[in-house]
Design a protein around this nucleic acid. Structure first.
Lengths: 149, 149
DNA sequence: TAAAATCCTACTAAAAAAATAGGAATTACG
DNA sequence: CGTAATTCCTATTTTTTTAGTAGGATTTTA
């Protein structure tokens, strides 16, 4: 019941872009260095975020990534779903009828799984990148040192 | 971000014991058959539930497992924690200070992880085996067929 | 034309999860 | 007493998933 590094890295990467990619695009190289993530691994996450419409890429020298929407229009939930798949604690509650297991109709535990899913979504869908950037800036000012992500 | 089969099987097993282990102990063999779980795999989960004080074992012929507490005193959350470990979506938020990563002090994403953890716990700690058994019985009566778990 | 970047996709390594295996100890019952 | 049914213990293997690495093609700026 853990998020993979894929999700953790990906979320930090897009937050990094939200913060550092405003004037000029943020390159994989720069993000990887700031976030201490393997460059090549990060490189594989970016297309997911791009295809989902969160970021745009700029190729060539001085290229990199910028947000494709404003931070308040990107929720943490959306990002995590793209990186991790549906935020359900078990597969069956998000699968189509024909792929459910034979005990579905008679299953009691499914009610718990569904409730957990709802709660998780409550948490992640109510917070956007904007909120996180604001926390970042506030802490930054308070403490007088660069805040990472 | 999925529960392992360990957790799913284990929860179903203890529910099975709550329902079927009232008159006589429920044996691994019988639970495995009802729940369609590998007997040998299940065998490895039971000691965890036993050590945690949820069930008691009866050895020998006609042996098996019975609940060690009443169902209303066993929450789903407790059971899942025993089987799965802390219900945190990332490790760092439940680790001791000295095991945290170097960016802890400056981390923004930790606030989300903590919130997700709280929400998950809200869901699982508020429901006990008693509730699930009641759902089971209600459905059972309604529909006129044995309900599994 | 050279350097810095994204893009694409295949491969490998490591870790975790799931399942299997086999025998020791305990107990009820004929 | 002996046998069958059971828990108990722990090691091994298999499978799946995750994480990381590699290398070259394409694009763009200066």
């Amino acid at each position: 019941m853990k998020f993979s590094t894929r999700s953790r890295y990906g979320l930090r990467a897009i937050l990094d872009i939200a913060i550092n990619g405003k004037d000029k695009p943020a390159s994989i190289n720069a993000i990887a260095e700031r976030q201490d993530i393997s460059e090549k691994y990060l490189e594989q996450l970016m297309p997911k975020l791009k295809r989902a419409g969160f970021i745009e890429s700029v190729r060539g020298t001085y290229g990199g990534y910028v947000l494709a929407k404003s931070p308040e229009d990107i929720s943490v939930g959306e990002v995590l779903r793209v990186l991790e798949g549906p935020l359900a604690p078990v597969r069956c509650i998000v699968e189509k009828e024909d792929k459910r297991c034979g005990r579905w109709n008679k299953c009691v535990t499914k009610f718990i799984w569904a409730e957990i899913k709802d709660k998780i979504e409550e948490a992640v869908d109510s917070i956007t990148l904007k909120t996180l950037v604001e926390i970042y800036k506030k802490k930054d000012a308070e403490k007088g040192y660069m805040y990472y992500i």
